[in-house]
């Protein structure tokens, strides 16, 4: 396999990283809202949130991607396929992250919230200053795991025609008749990126410890 092919794969892997990163970020934002809603005492909020989490964790990601990819044009929204792909990945990861964050929110010590009440913090201030930082810190290891899952799952967006790492390897394998080399190289790139995420995550995790702001 020539360097030229490998270069193409590396470029495509940057696209994979970009798609995954955007999806994780959007998913985190949605996940925070959904987890807050699912913990709400108002059933009008908690039931839809829990249904959302259950559905997006229950249906296969491939089916979700195909559905969103075809649903958006059917609703009259003509968006580029990459937007549909990011929407699908974001919704799926939002459900998983909401579940992780729910665990985080539930483990916030009650005493801290009572102290915050005593100190006169409003509900929003409590969320912003106490609950969200602690929950995010507790859920951080699972967030890193989720980032790795999404990076691997992003290979599925190749089926809606986005030329990321998997699709690039597939196209090159079809034109060069060298599937073994190309798919192995693509796998190696996924491994390297995952390793980077995992080591970056544990470095970052070490930099904040429990109880420190």
């Amino acid at each position: 396999m020539s360097w030229k092919l490998f270069e193409l794969l590396v470029q495509a892997s940057l696209y994979t990283v970009l798609i995954s990163f955007i999806s994780i970020t959007i998913g985190l934002a949605i996940g925070i809202v959904v987890s807050a809603a699912s913990l709400s005492s108002q059933r009008a909020l908690s039931i839809p949130a829990r249904t959302f989490v259950s559905f997006f964790r229950g249906a296969p990601l491939l089916v979700q991607l195909l559905l969103i990819y075809n649903l958006l044009p059917a609703l009259g929204l003509n968006v580029p396929s990459v937007v549909a792909a990011i929407a699908g990945l974001s919704l799926c990861t939002a459900a998983y992250q909401a579940e992780n964050l729910r665990g985080g929110f539930q483990s916030v010590p009650r005493g801290l919230l009572e102290a915050a009440d005593m100190a006169g913090l409003s509900a929003f201030q409590q969320f912003r200053r106490i609950r969200a930082p602690i929950a995010l810190r507790l859920a951080f290891p699972s967030l890193v795991n989720e980032a790795i899952m999404i990076l691997k799952a992003s290979s599925l967006v190749s089926v809606v025609g986005i030329v990321e790492l998997t699709r690039m390897a597939q196209d090159l394998a079809a034109s060069t008749y060298r599937p073994i080399e190309l798919f192995s190289a693509a796998g190696l790139l996924y491994l390297i990126i995952n390793w980077l995420i995992a080591s970056g995550g544990s470095l970052f995790e070490r930099s904040f410890r429990w109880g420190r702001p």
Binding site: I148, K152, A153, S154, S155, L156, S158, T166, A169, Q170, A173, P179, F183, A186, G187, Y190, L191, N194, W195
Partner: peptide, 9 residues
């Protein structure tokens, strides 16, 4: 560490 789809391909 690698996607299932890559393994299948």
């Amino acid at each position: 560490g690698t996607p299932f789809l890559i393994q299948l391909f």
